[in-house]
Design a protein around this nucleic acid. Structure first.
Lengths: 344, 344
DNA sequence: TTCGTAATTGCAGACGATTGCAACGGATCA
DNA sequence: TGATCCGTTGCAATCGTCTGCAATTACGAA
């Protein structure tokens, strides 16, 4: 190593007394070069440990071979799984990934978009923050003809491809399961009302109830701001309801886990006194006592699919028209929702 | 938008009939420009939604303002926390982050390094894979004078800065806690022997025993390959030991959770029949039944510290000499380790 | 011997932004 | 009137890589 960091073509060229363009062609295995020259150059390149400068290449071809990802928070197991799927797939297709987290803030989300666009990513994968209820920043991306795909937390009115779970279907599955187990008075603990998943899962909840001829009781739909405090309040509120619900379906597992913990402190037995179910199948769901019935949504698969679609678009393998990919969820039945003695 | 993606200085220059260099100077608020010209240019830039091309800037100044991060797996809550800390800190200091996962494979780890170096990252933050037991690739990085910092899973013989937890200290804390609770026959469930943390935590385990005058029994040190199957085998092996250990300290929480689940299936009561403790303070540790005593290691803080140190190095704020930062862990006492009736 | 042709290689310009230096015009001063 | 200086702007080179085209060489054919 002389001084700087990386060996460049210029240095190889100087050492061998050829021009830079010859070096470039040799390293690309161009057929119009003399085999002997090519050999010498590739040998010298290996010996000098030459690595192409991706920055320069990107600048030249106006493609960075890098994708940007924005998720609400990396530490959520679900989003971490998505990222993992994105990463693995992107790498095998020759793309790098820059990851940002919005920390559930729309301001941060906008800033992340700016950064990634300035960094010349070839495309973006975005899952919206909880705060995001205006969408100009996405429309602007669209107007600037920047490729992006929305996943999980999407906004339906943007004409781009989206990958989501069948949230309504998943909620329907789990509520139907509760109904089949004989529960009738079933509460739904929702997150903030304008969240995409709050709405979708409520749809499924309502559909299942209707199908079973159970009358909708608005009092049975409770809201939490998804903080620990909010979750505990809801837990207490439900206990005090008259008559008390027989089963509760929480919009996401963390809420269910908080509720479960709080109830256990109050001496409530699950599922004997109240049955409980969640959504997401977080790792915690399997290990709480009793294990939590929930709806599994494979994040890794979602990430894979979202990035595959984006790359197909970029590489011209997919049609320009936006598509909406909907992934199926899987009902995971555990003890927390079983009428005892259990049917199976 | 005409055709391409981004507005460039050239387009602003053409529109206003000035040269590109003038545009450049205007956007840098250079004092040697006519105020009126400057105004016109900044106005046009805003109107045309100009964003500097970071790729071009990076190429010019030979600094990408991007860092590379390599972790064994993103979906681990601990590493996700590290990444979160790294990300947040890097952004506030004007750096972007590219994240890769080695999936615990040394081959992948080497490939990640290559990719990131080719991408001209200004520095690297690396946590080694489980498989990594040779270190030429790190020595090569060092020889090429590429800045990097190791964190959590480190190799001590590389002369670069490292950020670790006081693993031996944490293990000492928890084993001492078990000893104070009256347990004497304490087993240690270790991961593969050549892992850094396996060794360090064993050190702490042994030190605590010695301090309390408890004789070391090699049979009490059991190994798992950290797979579910391996963990369950160890769980059974411990139950069959004669005499049976009174308490078990598992190297990481996931092992402890698997062991706990398996024991509960066998009708073993925790902590009445055997006490149990883990290490890491994963989210699952708090919600299992009984809640798991463990050692908390703040990943977010570790990420923050590691990246701060790397950036200080890059910006010339830190000395060139490698330092070793050791973070303290916190003992988290929960029910799984309490002698009943509990002292407190 | 001369011309044509193919095989090799180099030159120069481009990607987008930055910057030292030169150039230009106008104004001031002698 | 001429010299000088300052304010303002443009030219050209640079970062590392790629590529269309031109240039060079050698070789065989006529």
């Amino acid at each position: 190593m002389k001084k700087g960091r990386q060996v460049t073509m210029k240095e190889i060229a100087k050492k061998l007394g050829v021009s830079v363009s010859t070096v470039s062609r040799a390293l690309q295995d161009s057929p119009e070069l003399h085999p002997e020259t090519k050999r010498k150059i590739t040998e010298a390149a290996k010996e000098m440990n030459y690595r192409p400068n991706l920055l320069a290449q990107s600048l030249r071809i106006s493609r960075s071979k890098t994708l940007g990802v924005i998720v609400p928070e990396i530490t959520s197991h679900f989003f971490a799984s998505c990222i993992s799927g994105i990463q693995d797939t992107a790498i095998t297709r020759g793309y790098n990934v820059m990851i940002c987290q919005s920390n559930e803030s729309i301001t941060q989300e906008k800033a992340n978009i700016q950064t990634l666009v300035s960094s010349q990513v070839d495309g973006l994968l975005i899952s919206l923050s909880r705060e995001t209820n205006t969408f100009e920043h996405l429309h602007e991306l669209y107007d600037r003809e920047i490729n992006f795909v929305l996943f999980d937390r999407v906004e339906e009115d943007i004409p781009v491809s989206k990958v989501t779970f069948n949230d309504a279907g998943g909620a329907y599955q789990v509520v139907k399961h509760l109904l089949e187990n004989g529960f009738r008075r079933i509460a739904y603990v929702s997150g903030p009302e304008d969240l995409y998943i709050s709405k979708k899962r409520k749809e499924g909840y309502l559909r299942a109830l209707q199908e079973y001829g159970v009358e909708i009781d608005d009092q049975l739909i409770q809201f939490t701001d998804l903080t620990l405090g909010g979750n505990l309040q809801v837990a207490q509120r439900i206990l005090q309801m008259q008559p008390r619900p027989e089963a509760v379906f929480c919009m996401i597992d963390p809420v269910a886990v908080d509720v479960l913990t709080e109830w256990k402190k109050s001496g409530i037995r699950i599922p004997e006194d109240i049955a409980l179910a969640g959504f997401t199948d977080n790792p915690t769901a399997a290990v709480v006592e009793p294990p939590l019935t929930t709806v599994a949504q494979p994040g890794y698969e979602m990430g894979k699919l979202a990035v595959s679609h984006l790359l197909d678009q970029l590489d011209g393998l997919a049609s320009e028209d936006p598509v909406s990919i909907v992934l199926d969820t899987t009902l995971v039945i555990r003890k927390s929702s079983q009428h005892l003695p259990a049917k199976n």
